[in-house]
Write a protein that binds this DNA or RNA. Structure first.
Lengths: 332, 332
DNA sequence: TAGGTGAGTGTAACCGGTTACATTTCGCTG
DNA sequence: CAGCGAAATGTAACCGGTTACACTCACCTA
């Protein structure tokens, strides 16, 4: 391994000069700089990054905790994170936590032990064990966000978005609307449910708990929940699913029951994943700027890391858009 | 930051003893060990990982280069990689390369500069600039594999798998079969095309280049290619797509043309992504153990890193399975 | 000409662990 | 009780950079 000393020797200068020629070229004379660069070239020298990181206490790595990478929406968010991080010279250490707290804490430890400069959490959970008194490591909470997050956040106004979907269904004349929600205890699910109920209330409808079934954001959970909804004596004329994956599962189940979408029953989703416009019929849903969630989270995190302190308590709300396609139609 | 010296002082021992008590507990006496552990606890000491990495020249990080994380299949592979890596105490540095060579080389550099111990490449491309004479950094090539990979590989027998799909279509009586393939220059695409042609040849059919259209593994490219196939004077009675994403796009296009699947035209995909069994009709496809690709790649890579040298030239072939669903049926 | 200035460079301490080697401790045998 | 070897522990070099501080020297001013 060629190190800085070999290069210094080769160039006939001191190690300090080599370091400076590479990091702050403007403080060395042009002549020496050229000598050093030539020596670097000749020796095929590349600084040992672990040494640089160790000495400078900066790794230029960010930890990303994602509940499940198999979810198309999260995959897009990660794409945005990675792109933004890379552009700023940061790498990302990805952890697919599957919602496991121990795993999350272990990876969060990478920040405490200086193997990463900060952390982006895409789940509504604080992975840092509240070490008494000490400063919190840099963190941003995005997508599924804690109510009282101890850090900047990037989220959607889930309540307003769910309300707009529901209003769309109400406008089509539906008044018995089923809902397939996400896991319990999730602020995101709670907000979407609230938005759903807001719209019903404005329309003068009473919320009916028996029309709400929980899922886990996978197609098969949507499939199961739709089965439950259809087996009612008075099945709903429309179903609002908290994400597109569950909506696709629900649509499958509805078709297997011999019902037509949207003639017999309307279906709406949430996220606008790539498949939403390709399923049959194309899915009415809420479009979110997934990649931007990631980019924004990185921007906020780097603001904290470089302590541009004004950013320490920012809470960004990302825009959404109701995309109406053929999966929703007038009530029968 | 509490460091090893503070702990040593607290425990009334030397730094060496602290280091040993933590790394090789069996060489220190039980009494001292307890003293040290108590001091560690009291000081809330956690070794600075960058220092450990620097000193031991081991980072316990692996670089993963993925062409696009938005692809459901790759997302699953990454899930497998992450799980296996984590179990062995390794983290993964993810790079969504979008097929860009410069990006790939930059990340590959993390291995050369010791910020990672090895690399997993999911694309058929060698990211290391062939540095003359020097030893190749540890690398494994998985999924889309180079023909003459300079490293262990994990792949599918794409030719056999494509052949089995095609045989299934032929057995159903189809003799004009369209194909939507992947990007040119990809060994993976070439092999699937060869398998397709193998089956046709065995059935005594001549390959017809005009029935083969290129896509890029996205639903919209499948949609476009299907449009091209349908606009022929004699459209095919079946279409084999090189992945499920394109198959879903193709199915959408076929329905928009007013044709029924599979009565008018059969469609088959490749990968068996989560949505394959939920689309309409459920998709006939090739199931691959995506997560196992990742796990296997990690296992091989760690074999090289820990130079269990017997592994240096392994080429694993993963199993596949034809999953027949309702998207394929007898030729009209 | 003495003295001051600042650009360019070198010396060496330092980051926080790991570990080779030296030293001490302790139990055991003759 | 001397003597020995093994076990336990301490000392300090080391990894490869970064950077504070010291130093040299050319140039300028009074």
């Amino acid at each position: 391994m060629t190190n800085i000393r070999k290069v210094a020797e080769l160039a006939g200068v001191s190690v300090a000069t080599v370091s400076r020629a590479l990091k702050t070229p403007d403080v060395v004379s042009p002549g020496t700089r050229d000598k050093v660069l030539a020596a670097v070239e000749q020796a095929d020298y590349r600084p040992n990054l672990t040494a640089v990181q160790f000495r400078s206490q900066r790794t230029r790595n960010l930890v990303v905790l994602v509940p499940t990478i198999a979810n198309t929406f999260f995959a897009r968010v990660i794409g945005g994170i990675q792109e933004a991080a890379q552009r700023r010279g940061y790498g990302i250490l990805l952890c697919n936590t599957l919602g496991d707290e121990r795993t999350e804490r272990a990876y969060a430890g990478l920040v405490s032990t200086r193997q990463a400069d900060g952390l982006i959490q895409l789940r509504a959970h604080d992975p840092f064990t509240t070490s008494s008194g000490q400063a919190r490591p840099p963190m941003v909470n995005a997508c599924e966000v804690l109510d009282a997050a101890p850090c900047p956040t990037v989220k959607l106004d889930n309540r307003a978005a769910a309300r707009s979907v529901t209003e769309h269904l109400l406008a089509l004349g539906h008044c018995r609307i089923g809902m397939i929600k996400g896991p319990r205890n999730s602020p995101l699910t709670r907000d979407r449910l609230l938005g759903f109920q807001d719209a019903l209330a404005v329309a003068g409808l009473l919320p009916d708990e028996s029309l709400v079934f929980p899922g886990d954001f996978t197609p098969s959970s949507g499939y199961r929940a739709a089965g439950d909804l259809l087996s009612r004596a008075d099945p709903p004329t429309a179903i609002f699913c908290e994400n597109d994956e569950m909506a696709m599962g629900a649509m499958r189940r509805i078709k297997e029951a011999g019902l037509r979408i949207p003639e017999d029953i309307s279906v709406a989703g949430f996220d606008d994943i790539a498949f939403a416009s390709f399923c049959d019929p194309p899915l009415t849903t809420i479009a979110q700027p997934a990649e931007d969630f990631g980019r924004e989270a990185v921007a906020l995190l780097l603001d904290i890391i470089d302590d541009r302190d004004d950013a320490a308590d920012e809470h960004r709300i990302m825009p959404f858009e109701l995309v109406t396609r053929e999966s929703t139609g007038p009530a029968a």
